[in-house]
Every structure is written in structure tokens, then in C-alpha cells.
Amino acid sequence: MEKFKNINSTAVPMPMENIDTDQIIPARFLKATTRDGFGENLFVDWRKESDGTENENFVLNNDLYRGEILIAGRNFGCGSSREHAAWALYDYGFRVVVSSFFADIFKGNALNNGLLPITVSPEFLNQIFELIESNPTANFAVDLEKQTFICQTAALETSFEVNAYKKHCLLNGLDDTDFLVSQKSEIEVFEKEHVIA
């Protein structure tokens, strides 16, 4: 996993609620056996019409909105556990997703792939949407060390929660597998003493 670096970027607004992982990456694109290239089909059924042409009304097809930050309606990432959703967002170029509420499995998958989910209050989320609507080039700064999300031009600022262990992993590019493998002897002792099944 790559180290998470502070972000300074414009943002892409997607105010739709309950965006499920089937929309983020439809099941028919889960047939790859590597982690690469999923960005090409990110939100593909919203990006493209059934005849393959671009849907002009979808935000990712609108040149006004660009950036490494996705701002989404509540309950982002619900549904399937497919980690491909996190891979697709990351591969497309997103490094941060902001919402008022994330589905559990998606949130875990994002954190395991260097994609930072930031939970903000519903009121703050609305303020961000309003700000981007009036100023699509508004710039946002994400500082993981300080746990802050700031838009300086609009004097909009909030802090966010992140699990201390996960923060350490993100900042240092570490993953859980390295840690768990280092615990094997302890796990073997546990197996001898505890495991019934």
C-alpha cells in the first residue's frame, strides 16, 4: 500500500444517497484476477448510456468537476463486500471519499487500500454540496496527520475521526497482513489453548 499523502484538490459532488457497490463497479466487471484497471469501469452504468455513448448529465462526464476527492450522499458503499469498489475509486484517481455515513465493509476496504473515508456531519456535507454548486473549483485540503478537512476559500473546516491504528497504517503505507503474519506464534499458542472448532 502506498503512503497516504496530504491532499489539496477540487472535489466531485455526488449527492445521491445509498450509492451501492454494484453502481461503483457492476458485477460483470469483477472477472479480473488482478487489482488493476478497475477505474475504467468506475460507475460505468451511470457514465454511459446503454448504447455506449457518454451520459452528459453524469458528474464524472462534466469537465467542471475534477479532483481527488469524491463527496457523496449518506450510506456510501452499501451492498456487496467487493473490494473492487475501493480499487476502482483509487484507480480512477480518488484518494478521499467524504460522506455523512459509510457502509462498514466498504469503509474497511477503503482503509486497506489507501483510500481515506472521511465522515462529516449531515449539515457539513450539505454545506460542501452547496459550496461546490456555487463554486465548482473550490479547493479542499485534507490533512490526515491533523485529521482536518478544510476549504480555505469558504472558511469551511471540520476535523474527522480515524482509528489510531489505521491512521498509522495509512501514513506509513503498512497493511494488516504484515502485522498479522508477525503475530503467527501468538496465534498458534491461542489455537492450542482456546480453539474448540
Binding site: T177, Q183, I187
Partner: peptide, 12 residues
């Protein structure tokens, strides 16, 4: 679980 976790369970 996600695939990273599948790998973790496989590993440990």
C-alpha cells in the same frame, strides 16, 4: 470481508 482480508485470513 474484502479481498485484503481474505488474504489476511489465508496468511494468519
Amino acid at each position: 470481508i474484502g479481498t485484503s482480508q481474505v488474504e489476511q485470513v489465508m496468511a494468519a
